Amino acid sequence: MKTLLNIIWLLFGGLWLALGYFAAGIICCLLVVTIPWGLASFRIANYALWPFGRTVVDRPGGTGVFSLLGNVIWLLVAGIWIAIGHVVTAFAMAITIIGIPLAIANLKLIPVSLMPLGKQIVPSDRPFVTTYSKGYH
């Protein structure tokens, strides 16, 4: 079921959403100072491409002062506008019964689009098992 929902998601907005995050990541990486936000944009683009079956958790040790400060800056500059876009798109998707799961997936993207630093995307069947706890660094 997750695969079917991901394919429908990809066709009806996920691809364009992921491309937007990917483009933002490229721009942020080109500006050098904003590389952390660029890497976060790439992470969100990957999540936006195939969201069903995955969830967002806090990265172990990644929620320090710099992540908090970076998230506040991101929230004021871009996060609030991206979140509004997700809410509007989710509302449009929820008009049809078939679009309701897509709307929910769009709403799932809001927390990571508001505060992307210090987050990690993991399979939803193992939300507490991270790559760090397995020894992969």
Results as ranks from 00 to 15, higher is better:
Met1Glu: 15
Lys2Tyr: 10
Lys2Cys: 12
Thr3Pro: 10
Thr3His: 11
Thr3Glu: 13
Thr3Ile: 13
Leu4His: 11
Leu5Tyr: 07
Leu5Cys: 09
Leu5Pro: 02
Leu5Val: 10
Leu5Thr: 06
Asn6Ile: 04
Ile7Pro: 05
Ile8Gln: 09
Leu10Gly: 10
Leu10Phe: 09
Leu11Cys: 10
Leu11Thr: 04
Phe12Ala: 05
Phe12Asn: 08
Gly13Phe: 06
Leu17Tyr: 02
Phe22Trp: 11
Gly25Glu: 06
Ile27Thr: 12
Ile27Ser: 12
Leu31Cys: 09
Leu31Gly: 07
Val32Met: 05
Thr34Asn: 01
Pro36Lys: 01
Pro36Ile: 08
Gly38Lys: 03
Ala40Asp: 05
Phe42Cys: 06
Ile44Cys: 01
Ala45Lys: 01
Tyr47Phe: 12
Leu49Met: 09
Leu49Cys: 10
Trp50Asp: 00
Phe52Ala: 02
Gly53Tyr: 10
Gly53Gln: 09
Arg54Glu: 11
Arg54Leu: 05
Thr55Ser: 09
Thr55Tyr: 04
Val57Asp: 02
Asp58Phe: 08
Arg59Val: 12
Arg59Asp: 11
Gly61Asn: 02
Thr63Gln: 05
Thr63Pro: 04
Gly64Thr: 03
Gly64Cys: 06
Val65Asn: 13
Phe66Gly: 07
Phe66Val: 12
Ser67Gln: 05
Ser67Thr: 06
Ser67Tyr: 02
Gly70Cys: 04
Asn71Met: 01
Asn71Thr: 00
Val72Cys: 11
Val72Thr: 10
Ile73Gly: 10
Ile73Lys: 07
Trp74Gln: 00
Leu75Val: 02
Leu75Ser: 00
Leu76Cys: 08
Leu76Ala: 07
Val77Glu: 11
Ala78Asn: 07
Gly79Val: 03
Trp81Val: 05
Ala83Leu: 06
Ala83Arg: 05
Ala83Phe: 04
Ala83His: 06
His86Phe: 06
His86Glu: 01
Val87Asp: 08
Val87Ile: 11
Val88Arg: 15
Val88Lys: 13
Val88His: 12
Thr89Cys: 15
Phe91Ser: 15
Phe91Trp: 14
Ala92Ser: 10
Ala92Leu: 11
Ala94Asn: 07
Ile97Asp: 02
Ile97Pro: 01
Ile97Lys: 05
Ile97Asn: 01
Pro101Met: 04
Pro101Asp: 08
Leu102Ala: 09
Leu102Arg: 03
Ala103Ser: 10
Ala103Asn: 07
Ile104Trp: 11
Ala105Tyr: 10
Asn106Cys: 11
Lys108Ala: 11
Ile110Ser: 00
Ile110Gln: 04
Pro111Ala: 13
Pro111Ser: 14
Pro111Glu: 07
Val112Thr: 04
Val112Gly: 03
Ser113Pro: 12
Ser113Phe: 08
Leu114Gln: 01
Leu114Thr: 02
Met115Arg: 08
Met115Ser: 15
Gly118Ser: 08
Gln120Leu: 14
Ile121Tyr: 04
Ile121Pro: 00
Pro123Ser: 14
Ser124Tyr: 08
Ser124Ile: 05
Arg126Asp: 13
Arg126Val: 13
Pro127Leu: 02
Phe128Ala: 09
Val129Tyr: 05
Val129Asn: 12
Thr130Gly: 07
Thr131Ala: 15
Tyr132Asn: 15
Tyr132Leu: 15
Ser133Leu: 15
Gly135Val: 03
His137Lys: 14
His137Gly: 12
His137Asp: 13
